[in-house]
Structures are given as structure tokens and as C-alpha cells.
Design a protein around this nucleic acid. Structure first.
Lengths: 230, 230
DNA sequence: TCGGATTTTTACGAGATTTTTACGGCCGGC
DNA sequence: GCCGGCCGTAAAAATCTCGTAAAAATCCGA
């Protein structure tokens, strides 16, 4: 493996300088971003092996950054935070973070936790996924939250988009009604199976040339739905 | 997934009691060991989804436990420790631990970190699950829930598919009517033996070249059915 | 607060699936 | 040979699922 790449999303110059020094000394390639928005772009373009994100960012909540990342990548995310409250930790970890380090932290500990994260991805091959999914004329840009059919952009409501990305993450495999309800509407709505039918109708209406004969959004009768792959 | 299994290696009765209460309440199956040696045995026999190990054990160093575990398993290990020194954390993490929680800790944080560990293994098994059953021209792709005869895809209703996969899971062995009814229709229908005959007919009609002379779905008269292997 | 967008509910017909029923053949025991 | 149980097949009946439309409730930004 070449030197591991790390994206650091952090606004405090002091901490950035400190980490830049340690990380480069340890042989990491470090890419920095000072806002959440810039960080998301950086992760998309650099495809790093680890992301370190501060919870207190100027433009958007660090939690939102984690959730946006998790829409399209499984890259390990380590949270830095000035707040050491248990509630903050639980929220961040459940939002998709892999580790949580409270400030002030020691360089040694952070580096050790980065090594743990790298060990994890060494086993799993798909550390850095592709950020756009394509099949036929359909194109889903998970990084920028944009969807195209041919060169025509299609707009979606939040639930429609979440439903689509859930299918994208399991593209080619069947996703059960239960799974979709849990992922999109939360674990409390797993009995409202008709929600899925209604919204799958919306998606087909917007994406398919012939909504009644879907090419991408396939029904698996009695089980759930499947997004076609090439 | 059934309830996740956790092995706890910890000598302090107070902490054991505390964790026993919280973990069972959260729906985990907890197995306890009070010494490192017993812990290693417990992990070997229970094959848990997560291991929690205290660094200060009476018989052997917690670090040694971690190293011994890493000789043969990648199961996530979360370290509990009274010592919060950075040096201890680095040593434990580099020895193979996946996470390090200092005492005193909150139940919420530990549970959240356990969920992170479970997420990791869920993703890993996912990728490794390249399970497809083959015999002759028949091909059952369990991961994608697709079945082929030759290169022709065959579609199945939920019950048909469940019946087929039940046979696949015991391929080469006889599966009794009772067993099939219990697995497919649930324990309340074990007296409707003709269901199996009707549906076995469907399967043969869809899979066999000559349904009357089955090559894959064999009848074991008076007992049940058997799926042929090479 | 208003108006539009979005989500949640409700209803229903077409079609697929499951369940039930019926019947004919086969085989071993009597 | 006759009978009863087991097996396979077919088809009718009951039930459930899916897609669709549209009304009602809710949310959200101006």
C-alpha cells in the first residue's frame, strides 16, 4: 500500500498545524478542509483511507457531515470533539462515526486509532467506493445529491431520495420492504408497507421511461425491490 | 440476525453485574469469564460477535489475552481499563484491540461502541458472503436471491424460494416433511403435509427438464426430500 | 399567517399467490 | 385381488400483494 491518505476536516488552525506536523512525520498524506462542505468535496475527490472530522465546524454540524458521507461511502470516520459528553459520543457514533476522540487528545492515541481504522479497511476491499452509481441512462451522484436520466436532471423530495440511495447501496441485491422501511422511515414504521409502494411509484414515475414496465426499479414479488445493475 | 453474542472478560463483580443488567436489557446474549484463561476458552466456544476485556485481570495481562485472540480470530475486541494513560491505550490498540474505553465509563457510550463494532462485522460478512449453490445446470445465488437453470433465470414466489433454499441448506441430506413445514410455513402448520407436495411440484415444474423424472429434487419415500449434489 | 410542497392515509381493481379440494397412480400388506 | 396410505398433478377458491390515484394532514419557507 502507498502512504495512507487522510482527509482532515477541522476549522481551528492550531489543531490543523499540529496534526499536519505529526501526520506527515508518520508518513501519511494529509488533505485539509476547513468547512464541512469543502470536506465533503475533498473526501469525494481524494478517496482517502480515513477521515477525521471536528464536530464544531463553522458552516454545518459535524453530525451532518458524517451523515452525508455515509450516504455513499464506508470510509472510516474518526470524530474529534471538544465536547466529551456521553450523549454527544453516542449520537456521533450512531450517526456513522467509527471512533470518537475528545479534545484535548494526545497525538499517540489518535495515531493508534487511525491504525485501527486502517486495519479494518485492509480486510474489506471496498474502502473507497465510487461516488456515482450508473446503470443505463440512470446516474446517481451521491456526493452532490443529484440524479440524472440521460442528461436531464431529476429532482426528488427527501424521502424519495433516501429511498433511492438505499436501493443504490444494495444495487443488484434484493432489499426487503422491512429493510427499506427501517432505513428510510426509521425502525418505528416497519409495519407501514404501503409507504414503500406509494413512493416506489413516485420514483418510477420520475425515472422510468415506462413506469408500468420498469427497467431499473424492479419488483421482487412478495419480498421487496431491487435496483438493476448492468 | 439473532441477538448478538458478547463475551465479557472481567474480574470485578460490580462491573460484571452492571453490564449484565444493561446488556441483557438491550437484547444481547452475554457470556462472562473472570479470568483471561477462561475468557479465551469462552470466546473459542461461543464464537461471539464482540469481546469486551478488562486489562487488569488476576491471572494474566489483558494485553496477552488480546494477542492470543488475534492469533486466530478477528472478532472485535473492546478494552475496558482503569488506566487512562495514553501509553496504555496505544499499546492495547496496537496489540489488536479495536476500541478502548476508560473507567469509569457510561453504559450508553459502551453500547454505542458495541454497535459500531457490530456494524463492522456486518459489512465484512456481507462481502465474504459469495454463497452460490451449484449442481448440474442448476445454480442458486443466495446473496442476490436469483436462480438459474443453464443461463436462463427462473423466478420464484416467496414460498417456493424459501422451500428451495431450505433444501439447499441441507443439500445432499434428506429433509423430512416436518422439517420443511416448520422451516417454510412455521411451527403451526406441521400437519399440512400436502403443502409440501404441491410446492415441490411447482419447483420441479420450474427447475427440472423432466418434472416426472427429477434429477435435482429427489423424493425419499416415506421420509421427505433431498436435493442432489454433484 | 398563507400557499405550496411533501408526507401520510385511504380506497380499490387487477393480478399473483396461497390454500383448499379433488382425483388417479403406485406400492406394500393382507 | 383388494385396500389404504403416500405421492404427484391439476384446478378452483380464498387470500394477499402491488400499483395507482387522490384526498387529507402536515411541514416549511416567505
Amino acid at each position: 500500500m502507498p502512504d495512507p491518505a487522510v482527509v482532515l476536516i477541522e476549522d481551528e488552525p492550531q489543531i490543523r498545524r499540529f496534526l499536519r506536523a505529526t501526520m506527515t512525520r508518520e508518513g501519511y498524506r494529509l488533505f485539509e478542509a476547513t468547512t464541512g462542505a469543502a470536506g465533503l468535496v475533498e473526501v469525494g475527490s481524494r478517496q482517502p483511507d480515513v477521515v477525521i472530522v471536528d464536530l464544531g465546524l463553522p458552516d454545518m454540524d459535524g453530525l451532518a457531515v458524517i451523515r452525508r458521507l455515509r450516504e455513499w461511502t464506508d470510509v472510516p470516520v474518526i470524530v474529534l470533539s471538544a465536547r466529551g459528553q456521553e450523549r454527544d459520543k453516542v449520537t456521533a457514533l450512531d450517526a456513522g462515526a467509527d471512533d470518537y476522540v475528545s479534545k484535548p487528545f494526545g497525538a499517540g492515541e489518535l495515531l493508534a486509532r487511525i491504525r485501527v481504522a486502517l486495519r479494518h479497511t485492509a480486510g474489506a476491499s471496498h474502502a473507497a467506493d465510487e461516488a456515482t452509481f450508473k446503470v443505463g441512462a440512470l446516474q446517481v451522484d451521491l456526493l452532490h445529491r443529484r440524479v440524472f436520466v440521460g442528461d436531464q436532471e431529476v429532482r426528488f423530495t427527501p424521502i424519495e431520495y433516501k429511498l433511492l440511495t438505499t436501493l443504490v447501496q444494495h444495487a443488484g441485491r434484493v432489499v426487503t420492504h422491512q429493510q427499506l422501511l427501517r432505513e428510510v422511515w426509521g425502525p418505528t414504521h416497519t409495519d407501514q408497507a404501503h409507504y414503500v409502494r406509494v413512493y416506489m411509484g413516485h420514483l418510477r414515475h420520475k425515472l422510468e421511461a415506462e413506469p408500468a414496465r420498469p427497467r431499473y426499479l424492479l419488483t421482487e414479488p412478495g419480498v421487496g425491490y431491487r435496483l438493476a445493475v448492468e
